[in-house]
């Protein structure tokens, strides 16, 4: 029998069945229309995606249930750091369709995508660091992308199928917050070529941890390995008096405690340094600009740890 979603109505024929959306069990199901109109059988684009992804060694998702915790800034700094070695080919794919931050953080505002015989070319920051984002496709930077799920999924598919990524050592995927269309789609499209793992980003306060626990649950449901959890914006050292303060109070023990509870790997904490935000606004590599910052040390520790964990 075709697979049925966990919370489908009783006697659901399964979303991929010929009867999907048409059987009597489907009456009243909010997804009836989608099931009835969706194409059946295996996705014909999957082999094309597998072809493109064949030359990619590690596919890493940067996830968080919570918004604004630093997914994009971590993606950026991780990618800058990985591409520091000129022999390492790095690609960055931004699937936050409604709020793409990646172009600005790499200093690529206003860049456009070029077409070639072999597909869309990513925008290159350096020879070995290519970036793809919807931000490069918009006419006006302020245009809102008022799209529902299926349209977003279509674009994500194009990013995987039509972009000439070439051979990559790392493809780092920056995601929007949540556990919905974008996440399901990228997981589904990369199912056959395989996702190396997910890095989860959080901040120390309970309201963010709550959402990250949901993201852990999501990863387990869709069977993506979790590389580990990074705690961002942990503590702040006042530049004038060097006194330390907490900004987002870890009232429930912070990310370390959450990792113990959920049996996930804790990769480390990055303190809040206002210069991280500034570097991101200016599209610079924070690690290269401020090598003396305690945040740089923390970042480097975490990145080294990630490299160690990834299968060679």
């Amino acid at each position: 029998m075709a697979p049925a979603p966990e919370n489908a109505p009783e006697h659901c024929p399964g979303t991929e069945s010929e009867q999907a959306g048409k059987s009597s069990a489907c009456d009243g199901c909010p997804n009836q229309n989608v099931c009835a109109t969706a194409p059946k059988g295996p996705d014909p684009d999957l082999p094309l995606i597998n072809d493109r992804m064949g030359g990619v060694k590690h596919k890493i998702l940067v996830l968080s249930g919570k918004g604004g915790v630093g997914k994009s800034s971590f993606t950026t700094q991780l990618s800058f750091a990985l591409s520091h070695d000129e022999e390492t080919q790095v690609g960055v794919m931004d699937i936050d369709i409604c709020g793409p931050s990646i172009p600005k953080m790499f200093g690529l505002d206003g860049e456009q995508i070029h077409q070639s015989n072999s597909g869309w070319s990513p925008v290159y920051v350096t020879d070995n660091l290519g970036v793809m984002s919807i931000g490069f496709i918009l006419q006006e930077a302020d245009d809102a992308i008022i799209w529902r799920g299926p349209k977003k999924n279509g674009l994500i598919k194009q990013f995987l199928k039509d972009v000439d990524w070439g051979d990559l050592d790392y493809l780092v995927v920056d995601t929007p917050p949540g556990t919905s269309d974008e996440h399901l789609s990228v997981v589904q499209y990369l199912k056959e070529s395989g996702i190396t793992g997910a890095i989860l980003i959080t901040t120390p306060q309970e309201v963010a941890l709550q959402d990250v626990r949901k993201e852990i649950d999501f990863c387990r449901k869709v069977k993506i390995p979790i590389i580990g959890v990074v705690e961002n914006m942990a503590g702040f050292v006042c530049p004038s008096c060097k006194g330390e303060s907490v900004i987002f109070a870890p009232t429930t023990g912070g990310a370390r405690k959450m990792c113990e509870d959920t049996k996930t790997r804790f990769l480390g904490s990055i303190p809040l340094d206002p210069r991280i935000g500034k570097s991101c606004d200016q599209g610079l590599s924070f690690l290269e600009e401020y090598p003396e910052s305690p945040a740089t040390v923390a970042y480097q520790g975490i990145i080294a740890e990630i490299k160690k964990i990834l299968p060679q």
Partner: peptide, 15 residues
């Protein structure tokens, strides 16, 4: 369970 993820696509969220 409060840690359950809600893995829903658009139409279900809209409903």
């Amino acid at each position: 369970n409060k840690d359950d993820s809600v893995v829903w696509r658009g139409p279900k969220k809209t409903a």
